[in-house]
Design a protein around this nucleic acid. Sequence first.
DNA 1: GTCTATAAACAGATAGAC
DNA 2: GTCTATCTGTTTATAGAC
Lengths: 225, 225
Amino acid sequence: MAKGAWNRDASRAGEETRLELVGAAIRLFGAKGFEATSTREIAAAANANIASIAYHFGGKEGLRMACAEMAADQIGRVIGEVVIQSDPQGDPDEALKIIEIAITAALNFLVGEARAQHMAAFILSEVARPGEVFEKLYGQVFQPVHSRVCQLMGLATGRDPEDEVIRLGVFTIVGQVLYFRLGAHIVARRMDWDAFGPDEIASIRDVVVGNIRAFAASNKTGTRS
Amino acid sequence: MAKGAWNRDASRAGEETRLELVGAAIRLFGAKGFEATSTREIAAAANANIASIAYHFGGKEGLRMACAEMAADQIGRVIGEVVIQSDPQGDPDEALKIIEIAITAALNFLVGEARAQHMAAFILSEVARPGEVFEKLYGQVFQPVHSRVCQLMGLATGRDPEDEVIRLGVFTIVGQVLYFRLGAHIVARRMDWDAFGPDEIASIRDVVVGNIRAFAASNKTGTRS
DNA sequence: GTCTATAAACAGATAGAC
DNA sequence: GTCTATCTGTTTATAGAC
């Protein structure tokens, strides 16, 4: 019962509380919106005290930024690393394959994992609102990932990676993937799906990958439909 | 100064106040979220009294439903009518053209008009939340429009309009268009665009229409890449 | 680091005068 | 149909005991 031992336990518990708070906050911010979520609710969901939010993050606004940091890390791990650390070695087909692997990873995470729903909603609401959080997410995640996919698509098509058509085309791919998360309820109703299991995700993947290949094929240098 | 004249004026003013309230509410609900928007704020933006919300809509929840109704009507006018009232007369090329016209109309509205930003955000937040409003929007707008576009795409490809690939493919088109509204800040930053003027929208349109043609071509009956 | 208690501001709803 | 005034509950933030 030395004071040091108690402090170590307290520190560990403190860090754990911090993580629990951020996790609960992302879930609730995504589900109900930032302003609509009360700090009491977050603390209850994290099995923590209301005052702990002020202690760990200085207030609700600090918690928002901590959520953005965790979300950026998460996305970086799921999709960023796949796309950044790969090396197509100058092969157009290989470049296309890497994009397809990244899209599959993104779909599995976004559509397949339940917690991704709230994270996506949280990120979207933050990205729609210019400010400090937007700058962090854009610089740390969106800009690097988009640029890298443009490089791969440039290789796949033989075009300049910064060609306007390539940059916009990569955004259309992002939109296709994202919609199956944001419009999931509409899709489920229209497709008569009860849930997004492996079979449903595979069906979506096939269509999106088909679109990517069709985009690459129809935008290859020298081919104009 | 007969009582009748006063009543007519009051009625007209009442209807006008009602519309002002719904307009301001869609704008604010979209920009900040439903729960994050106070009734005081809405009343102030509509140059109306706080109590008028309870009078006209029974409360904040009634105002939400009135907003959904106005949004559904708006979307129906912008995109629904183009797609529903058209008749390709069995010609695959004509069917594709109708889809392209609808996509152009949707992009012009969604990306080009400022008020569409808040309406899109409002609809998205409502559609992410199963409930009465979702049912109304799905039944009145999303289901009919999606089914109709599937019919057109079925004609364009020679496939069954309710083919899984067709239904999912139409959703990927929706996602592409929607992303340029939801991710507008990201797109603007990455493209180095100051605003979404006619030239920028035309660039987006060309890429999206190219993707639609590529989808139709690569999914024509009997052609499998 | 965690807790209780409380302060100060703000929410939606409504009663009643006009 | 619009207004003021007010009721009741909830919000974030914080002071201070442990």
